[in-house]
Design a protein around this nucleic acid. Structure first.
Lengths: 207, 207
DNA sequence: GGGTTTCTGGACTTGCCGGTCCACTTTTTT
DNA sequence: AAAAAAGTGGACCGGCAAGTCCAGAAACCC
């Protein structure tokens, strides 16, 4: 099935995805028409269907993948090295900043709401993103524990899952209310809780 | 402007809202047409516009209000009396049960995604719901603190905000992945953290 | 450089769906 | 009980946006 794309074709396709992502972020998926995308990207109907034979859903899915890949990238390099408390605070700031900049739109979330049910691929994109994200968090927590900064008894996976949920919730609340306070509260609370769990740890701390 | 509704009219209106809510939950707002609602509720186009002069958005907003009012109701009476640890566990189970039953649809969330941007009323509905919800949680935490089960130094509002975020995130993750694990992890983690914060409290506990 | 494939442009079709209209019935009011 | 107001049924309209088609241009391959 895979059709081969020439260099030019590849460029056009990429232009369409990036442009579509812009429009979708501004207007929201349900009200964005293919003509909007056409206009923004300087393409024609036939090109849209040439590159995305499945039509609108196909394009939306491509945009979802595109947006999804950016979510974790935007948190790097901090997300990759959560092994000291300082690193956690830097990451926390990066996350807040990212979502503050994004404002009250959640490209991936609204895309999923639009095509999720019908297109099975969309769910896969989100599920994988969440899994990777949580894995990064778990790695960070594990690093703290192994570094003696957290008690050995801590349930790493539960903590990571709870933290991921808190972030998602903070973002989702931001979308509805326009305020980033809950995201901040969630992050601060979680880090503070982790920290206080490691506070009165025997030995180690001085090592 | 307010038109008076006869008893019959009231009943019809209620039937439309309830029926529309059903269809919307099943199909999602973006793909649900007024004809779907018509069919489900056994009404005609003119009735729909008779009761909801603003058209589809108007109806959707009414449904949003309807769904919103149920969210907190479904957590009662537990949510109203979070003054002992046992009460918290009961509430936790009620929340999990409610969302497990609801499955992978979030009536309010998807409604908001659909009409939020355009209809200002929708945002108000969500904002108010979240505020009330958080207030309940804060009241519960305050009760624990005043009962000597939590340290006096606890930042009640931050804790409540973080918990609310965690719940929202748990739900939102459930919508994407179909799994309720994150909601459970978030609730369990939060309650456990609160509890451990109150663990080594001086005096009081025996009083 | 000729043949084949890929790419592009835009006119055209199609069907859906929100919204209008108006005639008719039922209920309320006095 | 008659007039007024509220409620109901369904035919109809109009626009919009997804998707189709085909012809011509550009790129690739030998």
């Amino acid at each position: 099935m895979e059709r081969v794309l020439t260099r030019k074709g590849e460029a056009t396709r990429a232009r369409i995805v990036a442009g579509a992502a812009e429009v979708l972020r501004e207007r929201g998926p349900s009200v964005t028409t293919l003509d909007d995308v056409r206009l923004r990207t300087g393409t024609s109907k036939s090109q849209l269907f040439h590159y995305f034979p499945g039509g609108k859903d196909d394009l939306l899915l491509a945009v979802a993948r595109y947006e999804g890949s950016r979510v974790l990238e935007d948190q790097q390099p901090h997300l990759g090295c959560l092994d000291t408390w300082d690193a956690w605070y830097r990451w926390r700031d990066a996350v807040v900043e990212r979502y503050r900049a994004q404002g009250d739109t959640c490209p991936l979330g609204s895309l999923y709401a639009q095509i999720g049910r019908s297109t099975p691929g969309a769910r896969a994109v989100v599920v994988q993103l969440l899994a990777e994200w949580q894995e990064h968090l778990a790695t960070g927590i594990r690093a703290l524990r192994d570094g003696g900064r957290l008690p050995a008894s801590i349930d790493v996976d539960q903590a990571a899952a709870a933290l991921l949920a808190a972030i998602q919730g903070g973002v989702s609340i931001m979308l509805s209310t326009g305020r980033i306070t809950h995201l901040e509260a969630a992050l601060d609370w979680h880090i503070a809780q982790l920290r206080s769990a490691g506070e009165d740890l025997p030995g180690r701390m001085v090592e």
